[in-house]
């Protein structure tokens, strides 16, 4: 079963990650789900595919009352990101899903109605969770054409979706321990899945100006401290859209 680990806490303001399922079938990509809590209100980022709903739900329930989850943030439209939406709505039909407007007519194929979705405009917007203000930052074309990351200025954490992702061996560390060794697992992924050098440089320029303690991707390990900037610099120099095997 997946495990929930708290990665940030300041009173009732918390970030927890649900990760590392030793029972995950090897045909499913491993994913990280992040639960942001403010008081008794919670938001879940990229809740994952329906195949792992049971594992994510079970791990979260060990940590909190899942009824507190009032919103989902979907960085983009892929099945490993949001295909469990229909199951989450079975559990809580009033759940809101924040998602790029671009996918507002696509993702409902996984579940939900026009009451479910809160469309994020291209320029991004503030998502309020109790007293907490979370920023949906544009990350279009990284890798999806309608793509957002979620920034918590108070916690200095950026949920970065597929940016920073790495395809690691099973049960790897939750945090990046050796950047140079780790980045080898991230290189091919970014070359193939990130399609625009222009979008990448724009993202690097904007994100490098943010005060950041942690960069939390949807796959792989979390970058913290100096590794955050190391990653941004590495990514800025990596030619992307070049990963096609010939």
């Amino acid at each position: 079963m997946k495990k929930t680990t708290v990665i940030y806490q300041d009173g009732s303001h918390q970030w927890a990650v649900v990760a590392r399922d030793p029972e995950r079938p090897n045909y499913l990509i491993d994913t990280n789900e992040y639960l942001v809590s403010s008081g008794d209100r919670c938001l879940l980022t990229d809740p994952g595919g329906s195949e792992i709903f049971a594992a994510v739900f079970s791990a979260l329930t060990m940590y909190t009352d899942p009824q507190r989850i009032e919103a989902i943030f979907a960085s983009h439209q892929d099945p490993d990101i949001i295909s469990s939406l229909g199951l989450w709505l079975e559990f809580n039909p009033s759940l809101k899903c924040h998602l790029s407007w671009l996918w507002s007519e696509f993702v409902p194929h996984f579940g939900g109605t026009d009451q479910t979705f809160v469309n994020i405009p291209d320029e991004g917007e503030t998502i309020r969770l109790g007293n907490l203000a979370l920023e949906a930052l544009p990350a279009h074309y990284l890798h999806s054409s309608g793509n957002f990351h979620l920034y918590d200025a108070q916690a200095r954490i950026l949920f970065s979706g597929d940016v920073g992702a790495a395809l690691l061996p099973p049960c790897s560390d939750l945090f990046v321990q050796d950047f140079d060794r780790h980045i080898g697992h991230a290189k091919g992924f970014h070359q193939r899945w990130m399609g625009s050098n222009e979008a990448k440089l724009d993202w690097c320029e904007r994100v490098s100006r943010l005060p950041l303690d942690m960069l939390c991707p949807q796959h792989g390990a979390i970058y913290r401290g100096a590794d955050v900037m190391r990653f941004i610099n590495w990514f800025a120099e990596l030619p992307v859209g070049s990963g096609v095997r010939r």
Partner: peptide, 12 residues
């Protein structure tokens, strides 16, 4: 079927 993955004796 997806819900069947949740252990019967768990809080979930």
């Amino acid at each position: 079927h997806h819900l069947d993955g949740i252990a019967a004796d768990s809080p979930a």
